[in-house]
Every structure is written in structure tokens, then in C-alpha cells.
Design a protein around this nucleic acid. Structure first.
Lengths: 218, 218, 218, 218
DNA sequence: CATGAATGAGGGTTCATTCAT
DNA sequence: CATGAATGAACCCTCATTCAT
């Protein structure tokens, strides 16, 4: 009867368990973005509507949960970079578009998550970051090659500056802030557009180089 | 006056008490900047070389200590603004100078301190912030009046952008970061220099307006 | 019988269910002996190769599992007592043989299991203990009747002393300990051999009496 | 004014703090003896009448508290050994006396405390154990030299056997047990009295040797 | 006024037990 | 009947804040 073996998946992943996991990650992303990286895990569990131990079953250490959120955010941002490259004909317009899109995806929320003893060299992270790296590098190089973007900055500079400028402000204190973020990005982008108006100290930051030093790329 | 018991002024600010207070504030500033805004107060006391209760005598609640540090940092930054205005002949060069100086004063470290239930409308804060406001406003207006800085940004935009770009990265993980901060500021400044290269969404942020909304100015 | 639906006996004790139960008990005994009485039930289930809920189906409360292990250990020790009585001609040699055999069966591991709210008066336990009681009583009485064992001790004294002397030492810290246990038993046995060298305080402990008081016989 | 410097002890140990520490240790000893080594620290604090954090201030890790109790118990037992040596003319009677006294001091409670990751090689422990070692060794050697105790056992055998025979039974289930303990010790002692009635397997356990292997001496 | 000690309210985590597939 | 997932109570520990010397 070979070939007719019933397709018994080893253990079907139980619909509700999957939903729970997703609800936890969603709640975590929301709360990390809103309230910073120190939100009590119990509150995330409550917001997700599950018991705290369920959270621990899915993410035995706090880092595991943080990493999951970082991964999903990173993936979404990579998508925006690819989109921008593909859909925008002017290469510096692509950089602008990506930058504003990254802000909307809350790229700035990543930084505070990388706190403490978070393992920045976890294989999954490295892999996902490679994809982001490649996508942004592509974006930046095109603009520079076309002479539309100053040549003395790297993809790393762009990512860090954008992340910082879009970092959530403490507490939920400044919802109004969002309105200003895009202004600041626009100013920064104006500073990035060729021709350069001033000289920069140090040398261009590459994502690769940043990763080597600290892993704080994104 | 020999022979007359020295008049005991009602509240003579005993020399050592004053020194203690200063040592506490200094220790707090250092540790907030180095290790983030969550350092245990006991550690600050230890670093200052005083008992924890002494710290509490001077600053009954944690917020009181944080506020003191914020005030002193703010004051130092105001000084830099004044200095830049006075000592730099070109008004946009003054803006550049102030911006880099503010970074060196760790203006970015202010943000993480404003966490939680910190009262951002405390009279002392408002007063100190007024002084900063005035100084930066002056700086910006001069540059704009001289046609050296784009007119569609406000002092609030400058302060927020600079604060964000210089925020410490999580942990002490990225000491290398410091090396890049001034690059990013320089790019931002290039974007601020007249003539404007793009239009900005929203309207210019004034420090006054920001204060009204959220108090997150600095 | 082809074509005829097999008669479903009302409670056929499905072969695999029986095997599961046995595997659980075995795993539990091993882990209790190896790692103490506090091993998480999930680990026992894992070692047994079944899901934790299967364990709970068979043993609704932790105590039910512990009791099963206690019962099986008790039964094995009873067997040793019977063996010793039957196979050893000299009645005190029988006592010696049983004592060392009980040690090898890990009689000492029983004590730590009786912790907490374990119900020491469960009918099954009482029944099994009766059998042990009878067997050891027989062993002891024979030796005493033959004048080979001092008369002022009871079967209860023997059981308790042997259990205590063979209790596992904390952690797995002292594997070397095993080497000494038989020495101590031998000394104890020398003290039990007639004629008595000293007077004993109190009166002989019978298993029956101990059961009445506390159930800690075994 | 040299020589008249006021004797300002660096920090007088505050009477109530000392009392608290003692109350904690006492409560711990009682609860360890009564309920085993796993009693929640919070309960010990409650029994001692202090907040849990006070306990943690005095004993930052659980081990630190356990060690303190072990040290004090060990010291008391050493005292009994010295007493017995000094005050009993017949050297084997001294062994008997010490053995029963050690039981009354709850020497058996030590074993369960040495659980888990307890550091058995802490300097303080080693020191205290050396004193015990010396005292018991002395006691045993005198009896053996006088021909009153069998020569094929060591001080280590005595200590382990006595510890085991007096270990508290699980829970507080068997208060009645205490009544029997001295009977069993008496039997053991009869087995230790010269002349030897049987041969012992293995070789005599010395406290020194035991320490080397596992630290479970007492 | 300065100090070390004390406090109790959480946060992180584990585990016996129950539930849904 | 078997399973993995879910649950909540309880433990350990930290830290802002208060108290006693």
C-alpha cells in the first residue's frame, strides 16, 4: 500500500493554539510600541486574553517574545524597502517613500526592544536582518549611483537616523508627536539629497559594519 | 561681634548638606546617562556615597530627583544656546554649533527620563523650559531672518529632532554609536539650511505649542 | 469471523492503555528514586513517553501516582521478606538478608514520598501494608523465638531504622553514600542480634501501633 | 589628643537589627526541622515576624540562610561532642551520650538542608566542620583505643548513621517518631560496642574522606 | 540631619491541574 | 482514549518608599 499512507501530519497545530500565539505577538507589539519594552509580561498576557503561563509556553524567555516581534517588524519594513525600489521610478523618491513608510511601520520601536541581555546574534535575527540589509542597500545604492543622493552616507546611517527619529516618546505621553515625525524625516531627507552641502565627520556607516560592532542595525 | 553667639539663621544650609545634595544629583545624572532611567535609587545613593535615606530627604519621590537632573541638563543646554548665539557670527553656523553642543551635553538622555508618571508640568520645569525656549527661539529666528535657515521649521522641530537623534541606544550596547551621531546631525542640519528642498507636511512646531500638548519639548 | 463486527466487551482494558499505565508507574518510580519526590509530573510523563493528560487520566491527583509507586515498592519489599523467611534456614540470617535486600529495593526512598498531604490511610495502602506487616512480623518473631534476636524490639523498629538508614541523601550529591549504607545496616543488625547489650527506652514498636499513630510505617 | 579618639564603632550593629536576624535564623531552624528544607522563605519571614525583604537583606540567597542554620546546628553538636568527651569517664559511654545528645540537637535535620545547589565547600562550613570532625574523631578514637568500641568503623560512619536515623520524617506527620529514635540509636550503639559481631563490607568512613567526596559529612 | 534597616507591593517564573481537539 | 494547550495560584526576588536610631 505504499504511496497511500494517510497524510497524518505529525501533530496538527491546533487552530486555537495558533490563534493564541498570534494574539500574544500582536498584543506584545502593540504594548511594546505604546508603553516601551518593559511592560510586564502579565499585562501582555491579559491584553492578549490568555493566562500568563500560556505566554510562557510559547515564549519561554522574555527574549523569545521580543525577538518574535522584532522579526515580524523587520520583515514588514523589508517589504516596504522592496516595494519602494520596485514601484518608484525616481530612485531618490524611492528613498523618501521607504523612509516615511518605515516610520509608519514603527521602525523606531525596534530600538527600545533591543535592551538588556537581548541576544542580538540569534540566527533568526541575523537572517532577517540580512534581508533588510540587502533591500536597503539596494535602495541607497541606486539613488547614489543616479547622483540623486549624497555619496558619503551608507544604508546604516539611514536606518539608524530613521529609527531614532521615529522612536516612541516615553509613556503614551506624546501621541501628538506622530504628527511631527514626518516633518523631521523630510528635513533629514533634504539633507540626504545630492548635492551634499557640508562634509560629514567619520565614515559612512554600513549595515554590515554596524552589525559587526553591536547588532543595533535597525 | 566677638562674644555674641553667632546668629543662627533659621535655615542655614549646612555646608555638608549642600555637598551631599550636589553629589546625589551628579551621581544621578551620570547613572541615568550611562545606565538608563531605571537605575535603582539605592545604587545612585551608593555611587554618591550617601545613605539612601539622605537621598530621600533631599528628593522625597523619585520624580523629584529626576526633575532636578532634567533641570540641570536643561540649564546646561540653554547655556550652549546662548553661547552659540553670542559667539558665532554666521547665524546658521550658530545653529550648527548649538546642535552639536547639545548632543555632547546628552540632550538625548532627557527623553527616557520623562517616563511614566513624571509630572511634566511642574512649575520649576516650566520655568527652566521657558529659558531654553527663548534661547533656542532666538537662535532659530536669527538664522531664518538672515535667510540662512528654511522658514518652515520651528525651534520645537529642532529640539525634538536633535533629542531623538541623540538618544542613547539600549543598554550600553552601542558605544560605537556615538561616533555616528554627529554625522546624522550634520545631515539634518544640511536639510535645515536654506533654501528648502522640499515641502514639509504639517506646520512648524514651536516649543510653546509642544508644551501645551504634551510637555515633551526637551 | 470476517464480516462480523468484533464484540466490544464493555470494558476491555485496551492493551496499549495498560502498557501506558505501566510505563508511567515505572518512570515515576525511577524519577522519584533518582531525583527526589518533587519531580514535576510533566517530566514523568515525558520520560514515560506519554502526554501529561494521559498521566492525569490514570492518576487524577499527584497522590494517586505516588500511592501507586509506594504500593509497588511495598509489594516488592514484602516479597523480599517472604523470600528471606522461606529460603534462609537460620532465622537471624533471614533478618540480615531481608534488611540488605530492602536496602537494595530502595525502601528508604519511600519516606520522602509520604510528604505533604499524602493520605496515609488510603485503603489500598492499608491493605498492602498489612501484607508487609505480616511478613516482617513473621521474620522477626521467628528470630526472636529462636533466641537469635533481642526480644525488646518490634518489626516496626526494624522497618523504620532500615528506612531511615537507607534514605537517599539530598540531591544526587552523594553517590558514594551507597557504599556505606550496608556497613551501617550491618552495625544495626549486630545491635539487634541476641543477647541484648543494653536496655532500650520505651517499648517495642509494632507496625500495627505505628500505623495507628501516623501511618509512617514504611 | 592622640589616644583619646572617641571609640566610635564604625557602625554600631543596631540592637533591633540583630534581634531580627536572630529571629529569622530561629524561625528558619524551626521550620526547616519541622517542615523540611523547602519551606517558602516568605513563611519563614512571617514566622519570624518580619517582612520578606528583611530576610533577603540578611540572607541574599536562600543558601546563605541555610548555611547559617547549618553552622549553628553544627556548632551546637560539636559542643555536645566536647562535653561528652570531657564529662564521661567511660569512653564508650561518652559515645553513647554524644549520640543521644546529637539526636536531641536535631542533627538529622542537617541532611535535608544540603539539598540542591547548596555550596558544601563554603569556607565557613569547612571551618565549622573541621571542629566537629576533630571532636568526634577524638571521641571515637578514645573508645576504640580503650577496646570499648569496634575498630572497623570511623567517625564518619557514626555521624552518617546517627544523622540518618534521626532525620525528620516527612511533613509534621510523625511527632510520635521522636519516641522511637532513641531506641534505634541504642540498638546501633549496641552494634558499635566491642567486640564486633560481624564483619563490615567496605572500609571505615572517615569524616575527612567523606568531605572529600561529597561534603555530606554531617 | 544622616544612616542602615524594614516594609510590601509587584514582576518573573514554575507547576499541579483542567480543557479542547 | 490520547494529546498538547491553557490556567491560576504560589514562590522567589527586587525596589521605591518609610521607619527607628
Amino acid at each position: 500500500m505504499a504511496g497511500v499512507a494517510p497524510v497524518r501530519r505529525v501533530s496538527r497545530p491546533r487552530a486555537d493554539a495558533v490563534r493564541n500565539r498570534e494574539r500574544i505577538v500582536t498584543a506584545a507589539r502593540e504594548m511594546f510600541v505604546e508603553s516601551g519594552a518593559q511592560v510586564p509580561l502579565d499585562e501582555i498576557a491579559r491584553r492578549a486574553g490568555v493566562g500568563n503561563a500560556t505566554l510562557y509556553r510559547n515564549f519561554p524567555e522574555r527574549d523569545d517574545l521580543v525577538r518574535e516581534v522584532v522579526l515580524s517588524l523587520t520583515a514588514r519594513i523589508t517589504e516596504r524597502a522592496v516595494e519602494a525600489t520596485e514601484q518608484e521610478s525616481d530612485p531618490f523618491e524611492a528613498v523618501r517613500r521607504f523612509t516615511h513608510a518605515a516610520a509608519d511601520e514603527r521602525v523606531g520601536a525596534l530600538c527600545p526592544m533591543l535592551d538588556g541581555d537581548f541576544d542580538k546574534n540569534h540566527p533568526d535575527l541575523l537572517a532577517e536582518r540580512s534581508r533588510l540589509e540587502e533591500a536597503v542597500q539596494e535602495l541607497v545604492e541606486r539613488a547614489q549611483t543616479a547622483g540623486r543622493m549624497r555619496a558619503d552616507v551608507g544604508a546604516g546611517d539611514l536606518m539608524i537616523a530613521v529609527s531614532q527619529l521615529t522612536r516612541p516618546l516615553p509613556g503614551t505621553a506624546c501621541p501628538s508627536m506622530d504628527r511631527f515625525v514626518h516633518r523631521h524625516l523630510q528635513v533629514l531627507l533634504d539633507g540626504l539629497e545630492a548635492p551634499a552641502r557640508s562634509e560629514l565627520p567619520g565614515s559612512a556607516a554600513t549595515l554590515e559594519g554596524l552589525r559587526r560592532e553591536s547588532g543595533c542595525t535597525s
